[in-house]
Design a protein around this nucleic acid. Structure first.
Length: 641
RNA sequence: GCCGACGUAGCUCAGCUGGUAGAGCGGUUGAUUUGUAAUCAACUGGUCACCCGUUCAAUUCGGGUCGUCGGCUCCA
């Protein structure tokens, strides 16, 4: 039987003997790569290499160089880890153990609580298993038989999984004395796994539901080569250096103080100036786009929050009421009801719409203690909020306008790592089907017309309307929701918001909630990680550090700094009794974009010796020329490392 | 909130099996006057997160609280 084996660009025609497996053909056809070939694709589906072909055709070989191949390797690694755990701790009950983006994990339920030191022990056992070279053997069995098997083993989680599988047969994979329920495919033998590392232990609820038992999850990773594994470890260490919490401390940007409480941010002068620059830019861009600004209070009567529905739907995120005279007041978790009150302060005509009202509104939300994370998840934050009141016929254009605005912001700040999601109608929601359809369509059309690549997040919309989320990715690859546009039919309804149409009758506007940055805190946090603390000149807390070589040049240095300051440049003179080298080092560590060194030569020539961050000495330059260069960098918002 | 780990000087960290703590950086003072990533010296600095307990004695052992970190779940 002749079958074509395809491996990347290469192919080979192979004649299979009766009962011969793909694996044996691979060993003969591609002896060089046999260790990296882990599975095969037959008629579109992935199968084990141990498969014996039953008809002629083409078989595509899958290597660990591909996404799928790597996943197979890692998934197999999780099985090997499970086998090791079962050997070490026979009472362990296994839940699920999938491959994930960065490796794999397995959730385990057992009496012993694992300590970090145990990872080494488990790893050791895994090495032992890989050296045994146990074959992964697949067996398709009737579901009842599988249930029986796992019941006998006391694997109640597997039994529970099986009870929800609709098929009549399932596949089991056995390596050595260990059998697991699995779709497969797997690597042919445990010997294929060579380069792996267990990374951490964490708690995880069974099926991610906090009502269920907390299991122990072990994270690990595996790679085809030693170099790739080492590269992954180094990349993790590098990412840790970009962590905004670490940089926030080192660069004196912000702090979160135990004395004041968790999740509450203190912006230090250097962080505050960056925020001020962001806000100035934000305001200017809003004016260009026809927005107006509003300011609203931080607290409001509980009745308002009952009207808005927050008291009902959002109470678990709101702080307890404050007693004011005989009334109860709430700290605001959102700005929307306030903007609505401004809207309702007078009768609005169809000619007034769209109204676009923006506010840097500080809100407070209760977040569970375990989810707080530096600046990325806090309890008090300032949203760069805006609400648009639009007529139905304006919805499309307004959504597009917001997306264009968002894109402009993301591009200006140089974000390269983000994902866009369109979230559709959730199970529990308000509003008519027609409204939902129209709004979802408006969002979809806007995304398409703007040529923004996005994924659908089914059922993840807010109860009052669909939304588009832009999720920014942090240094270690976690996603955080930043910019978002949400369509809302609910609040206009609840507050009976209207405008008078051409027909002289009352009509209901649609409301858009949107943020183009997210919140100042979260945006700043991701921004720090994006730049690794090396802000572009326009944002840098100190833009120019003037370094006099000896104290003889201090007066000249001060004059240079004054000239820069007079043009709005943030310049500072380092007058410490230190050697120039030490001053340069500190300025570099503080990631100051320009260092202007002044010695006797420069002082006598109205010049500065310019040093650019990370690039070193740029040579001497007239002060005026340097000044214009810095202003140009600020004006163009140029980004350099 | 839940599971686990962690909490020592402003910062980064040492401190073995209980005998009330150290280093480097920083800060202050003095000396040095220097050409592109750390000049030298002296001094300064800690209720060992907090509370309770065990003990003759607790930074060290046990319990609790608070906070941080990694996850789970949730959101800007």
């Amino acid at each position: 039987m002749d079958i074509k084996l395809v491996l990347g660009d290469h192919s080979s025609l192979y004649s299979f003997a009766r009962g011969e497996s793909v694996l044996s053909a691979v060993e003969k056809s591609f002896p060089e790569q046999k260790r990296s070939i882990v599975a095969a694709r037959v008629e579109g589906s992935l199968v084990d290499l141990t498969t014996v072909p039953s008809s002629e055709g083409t078989i595509e070989l899958v290597t660990t160089g591909s996404r799928e191949g790597l996943e197979i390797l890692r998934h197999s690694a999780s099985h090997i880890m499970a086998e090791a755990i079962k050997e070490l701790y026979p009472d362990a009950k296994l839940a699920i153990g999938p491959a994930i983006d960065s490796g794999f994990y397995y959730d385990i339920d057992m009496a012993r609580t694992l300590a970090p030191d145990d990872l080494g022990v488990i790893e050791e056992k895994m090495h032992e298993i890989t050296q045994r070279g146990e074959h992964f053997v697949r067996r398709d069995v009737p579901i009842a038989e599988a249930v029986q098997l796992f019941k006998e083993q006391g694997d109640q989680y597997k039994v529970e999984i099986l009870s929800e599988i609709p098929a009549t047969t399932v596949s089991l994979y056995t390596q050595g004395a260990f059998t697991d329920l699995c779709r497969g495919p797997h690597i042919p033998s445990t010997g294929y796994l060579k380069h792996f590392k267990l990374l951490s232990i964490a708690g995880a609820y069974w099926r991610g539901d906090e009502k269920n038992k907390m299991l122990q999850r072990i994270y690990g990773t595996a790679f085809p080569s030693k170099e790739e594994l080492a590269g992954f470890i180094t990349a993790r260490e590098e990412a840790a250096k970009r962590d905004h919490r670490k940089l926030g401390q080192q660069l004196d940007l912000f702090s979160i103080q135990e004395q004041a409480g968790p999740g509450l941010v203190f912006w230090h002068p250097k962080g505050a100036i960056v925020r001020k620059e962001i806000e100035d830019f934000w305001r200017a861009e809003h004016i260009k786009r026809g927005y107006e600004f509003v300011y609203t209070p931080h607290i409001a009567n509980l009745e308002l929050w009952k009207t808005s529905g927050h008291w009902g739907f959002y109470q678990q995120n709101m702080y307890s009421p404050l007693q004011v005279d005989e009334e109860q007041y709430m700290l605001k978790p959102m700005n929307c009801p306030f903007h609505i009150l401004i809207y309702k302060s007078q009768v609005r005509s169809y000619r007034d719409l769209p109204l676009r009202w923006a506010e840097l509104g500080t809100v407070y939300r209760y977040e569970k203690s375990g989810v707080l994370h530096g600046l990325l998840r806090v309890r008090g934050f300032t949203q760069d909020d805006a609400h648009l009141f639009v007529r139905p016929d304006q919805l499309n254009d307004e959504v597009k306008g917001v997306l264009d605005f968002t894109r402009h912001m993301i591009e200006t700040f140089g974000f390269t790592k983000y994902n866009i999601y369109l979230s559709t109608r959730p199970e529990h929601s308000v509003g008519s089907d027609e409204n939902w359809e129209m709004a979802t369509e408006a969002l979809r059309v806007a995304l398409t017309e703007m040529q923004l690549p996005y994924k659908i997040d089914p059922g993840e919309g807010v109860f009052y309307g669909p939304k588009i989320d832009v999720k920014l990715v942090d240094a270690i690859g976690r996603e955080w929701q930043g910019p978002t546009v949400q369509v809302d039919f609910n609040l206009p309804e609840r507050f009976d918001v209207t405008y008078i149409g051409e027909d002289g009758k009352e009509h209901r506007p649609i409301m858009l909630h949107r943020v183009v940055l997210g919140s100042m805190e979260r945006f700043f946090g991701t921004l720090i990680e994006q730049y690794a603390g090396a802000f572009p000149v326009w944002l840098a807390p100190v833009q120019v550090e003037v370094v006099p070589i000896t104290d003889v040049q201090e007066e000249y240095a001060a004059r240079v700094a004054d000239r820069l300051s007079a043009r709005g440049i943030r310049a500072k003179v380092d007058t410490r009794r230190e050697k120039m080298q030490a001053k340069i080092r500190d300025a570099e560590l503080q990631k100051v974009p320009y260092i202007a060194v002044v010695g006797a030569r420069e002082a006598s020539a109205d010049a500065v010796a310019v040093r650019k961050r990370h690039e070193g000495d740029q040579g001497a330059m007239q002060v005026d020329e340097f000044l214009e260069k810095v202003l140009e960098d600020i004006r163009t918002k140029v980004i350099f490392s």
